[in-house]
Write a protein that binds this DNA or RNA. Structure first.
Lengths: 112, 112
DNA sequence: AATCACTACCCAGTGTGTCTAAATATATAG
DNA sequence: CTATATATTTAGACACACTGGGTAGTGATT
């Protein structure tokens, strides 16, 4: 199973991010790990790819973010937690539909 | 069924081209039409997108091209015919496998 | 003959989004 | 004190699809 390169990912990463946030809010680094875990070793995203995507999604109003409050149980670098907004949930539904249509159409061509 | 935008297509167009050429050689404009026909109205490629892809694939040795000889039955603008090379056929197999892995992995994430 | 529509190819410039690669910061283990 | 893991940030490079134009031959319409 070879690696999924950047070009193939284009236009789908945001949908993936929205999807993993559907199962609960998470901070950036955690999203990265959720994606990698789900990627069967084929997905090797770097921070420099994910964070700009998060900023875009936040800017579009699909995600809301807040700095995690200090907890005594955990001292470490501050984290920024992201969650789906209502708008983001609706967008996810649209992008899922778009993903399916993409797979169907391109698949029809590629799977001759 | 909304349109498939450019970013989603990235990294897949070449696979699509190799695929349509599997059913027989064709010139650029015809490839464009085959893709559009198979696209259920969602694929609107322009020449400026396809031709550079053809040049890339030719440069990589996956396609061979020749100017179509003048035929008495058809007089019109010259056509450049493309066909899969042996190398191109092997590459198509690889890219198909890659496409399937892509759909599986991204699909797993997106289809929650 | 002039214009239009269709076929067919070519190309320069633009833009988006992922990649590379590095910097910053805190906590724990050796 | 250094290394490792966590966690965020950003600058710069680059690939590739897009926009929107251009050339040219042919047949049909005006």
């Amino acid at each position: 199973m070879d690696e999924i390169k950047g070009n193939e990912l284009r236009g789908h990463l945001e949908t993936m991010v929205l999807s993993v946030l559907e199962r609960g809010e998470a901070h950036g680094y955690e999203i990265l790990q959720r994606l990698e875990d789900a990627g069967c070793g084929a997905l090797k995203l770097k921070e420099g790819t994910l964070y700009p995507a998060l900023y875009r999604l936040e800017g579009l109003g699909f995600l809301a973010a807040r700095w995690e409050a200090n907890e005594e149980s955990r001292r470490g670098p501050r984290r920024r937690n992201y969650r789906l907004t209502r708008k983001g949930t609706a967008e996810l539904a649209r992008r899922r539909a778009s993903w399916r249509s993409f797979v169907t159409i391109i698949g029809n061509i590629v799977e001759a």
